[in-house]
């Protein structure tokens, strides 16, 4: 295992120390393991969290116009209720707190417990579940679709709504709307290596790709042969299109999984733009870069959100976080 770390057990602590040093405008609570910008009186507090290894998600999205706190778990392990509870209390500005939860059993259960504990303490807590990954069949026979790239859209758009004074129920409703309109699909070219185990999450042949991979390296729908950027984009977009028509105004994210050069993401974005044009889609907003990663995995995910004028307006609203900044 080749990693720029000090010891597998120290990765999260060291990273939090580094993050705190790099972004003095944010507060890192090392004891309770959360990153926050503090409470804003009268504003709904937004808390997200999940396993680490997906940076910049979620810590990189704490700041004006987006999250109020992020709770990182150990690498690929959901955070625990205590830290979620501490963060929830820390960002309570009197208007309640919204939890943004990616749909993984561990995340769901830990957030649920935190919400119950917060409720016991008299806090008003709502939660939005993100489950946008079309690679997972949404059936009663699975834990349901995973939360992946759509999380970035939910956090940004709800963040803007909260900043504008939307109440807790409205924030939750907008979050659910964004989630309902978002779909993702990921493809891996190489596996990642969890620091604590030191070995690759899966084995891929020199000419194989994992189609429909999850952000923890969970295997996907199938393995396929290595193909062109155009084919990869088509596989992802067809899977999404089969679930939600893409023949309208959409926002697109071409997201690097951590080990893919940015120049390749541009190549993929060109292919995505082409495909959408040919299928009647109109890209009105985009993100190209590493936003929700899977350690050093090579590959990309594509997330699409069907926009409305209101959502676009909220997307365009100012945001000032380590990983997303514009408009102020």
């Amino acid at each position: 295992m080749k990693k720029l770390i000090n010891a597998p057990d120290d990765v999260l602590t060291d990273a939090l120390i580094g993050f705190g040093a790099a972004y003095p405008e944010l507060t890192v609570n090392l004891e309770d393991r959360y990153i926050t910008r503090g409470p804003t009186a009268g504003k709904v507090g937004l808390v997200s969290g999940g396993g680490s290894g997906h940076e910049p998600l979620h810590g990189g999205f704490v700041g004006y116009g987006m999250l109020d706190a992020a709770c990182p778990g150990e690498v690929f392990t959901s955070p625990v209720p205590d830290q979620l509870l501490a963060a929830t209390k820390a960002v309570n500005g009197g208007a309640g707190v919204l939890h943004i939860v990616k749909n993984y059993t561990g995340d769901v259960l830990n957030f649920q417990m935190a919400a119950e504990l917060a409720g016991d303490d008299g806090l008003q807590v709502e939660s939005v579940l993100v489950n946008d990954d079309v690679a997972v069949e949404n059936s009663t026979y699975t834990a349901g679709r995973r939360g992946t790239g759509g999380t970035v859209f939910v956090e940004k758009i709800v963040g803007a709504a909260a900043e504008r004074g939307a109440d807790l129920a409205t924030c939750a409703a907008i979050g659910r709307e964004v989630n309902d309109r978002s779909r993702s699909f990921g493809v891996a070219l190489t596996a990642n290596v969890i620091p604590a185990t030191g070995s690759p999450g899966f084995e891929l042949g020199d000419n194989e790709i994992e189609i429909g991979v999850g952000i923890h390296g969970e295997p996907g729908r199938a393995r396929g042969p290595m193909s062109t950027a155009r084919e990869v984009a088509a596989i992802a977009l067809e899977a999404i299109h089969a679930d939600m028509p893409l023949d309208d105004e959409v926002m697109v994210m071409v997201n690097g999984l951590g080990g893919t050069p940015l120049i390749e993401l541009y190549v993929v974005y060109a292919a995505v733009a082409d495909w959408l044009k040919a299928h009647g889609g109109i890209i009105t907003r985009n993100l190209v870069g590493d936003y929700i990663t899977s350690l050093e995995m090579a590959g990309c995910s594509i997330t699409v959100c069907r926009m409305t004028p209101d959502l676009t307006d909220l997307w365009d609203a100012p945001v000032q976080t380590p990983a997303l900044r514009w408009g102020r």
Partner: peptide, 12 residues
């Protein structure tokens, strides 16, 4: 266990 484990198994 709830405070320290994380993941699905911790709460369970």
């Amino acid at each position: 266990l709830i405070s320290k484990t994380g993941g699905a198994s911790g709460p369970l």
